[in-house]
Write a protein that binds this DNA or RNA. Structure first.
Lengths: 93, 93
DNA sequence: TTATTATATGCCATAGTTGGAATATAAATT
DNA sequence: AATTTATATTCCAACTATGGCATATAATAA
């Protein structure tokens, strides 16, 4: 199979392979949030959250919307909810 | 949320965050395969494939079945096929 | 027992990731 | 224009992953 395909796919899973970024995805499953809201809920430094969001965004998993001083992030792919749900169910066992 | 939950979940995505391991998952979507079969199809060294399978297995994504000298691996979670399908569709665009 | 075959493990240099602290940018307010 | 607030970027030391090669294990066959 083509290299580029698997490289892009790898980037997607790398973006998800971090506890803070997975928590961000879980927050966004409940609807769009701005950076400071996420930083506050996860009790993380703002630059850390900003970098985490950048990684998720450049992998194509989330999108952003600017409004004044705030930047709001939300999920960009449909199947995230289902897959995370399935993984959660698997982890329950 | 509890640390252990997100650590385990992170381990799952880390296991998937590698082009060779993603290719292995794609092969296993078509049915169980032994190590040498996978190594041959992916044109990789056997130790490399063996370590890759070990990582996928300890994350709980695949399971193994021994039969004589061979060890056959297959997918252990249901939703892998759907999620990979969705990611592939997303990458087409 | 010895040889063969399939698989797993250990070692290791290189490359990539992590998150903290300081700093930069950019929009809104005074 | 100066200040404030939200977000993004840079630098960097500590940590972790990567894959090649040699070697170990384990099952079968001769």
């Amino acid at each position: 199979m083509d290299n580029k395909f698997y490289e892009k796919k790898t980037e997607i899973f790398k973006a998800l392979a971090n506890p803070v970024r997975l928590q961000i995805v879980d927050l966004l499953i409940d609807g769009e949030k701005c950076v400071c809201e996420i930083a506050e809920k996860l009790k993380c430094e703002q630059p850390h959250i900003s970098k985490s969001l950048g990684k998720l965004r450049s992998a194509g998993l989330i999108k952003d919307r600017k409004d004044g001083l705030n930047v709001y992030y939300s999920l960009a792919i449909c199947c995230m909810r289902e897959f995370v749900g399935c993984i959660n169910k698997m982890l329950d066992e």
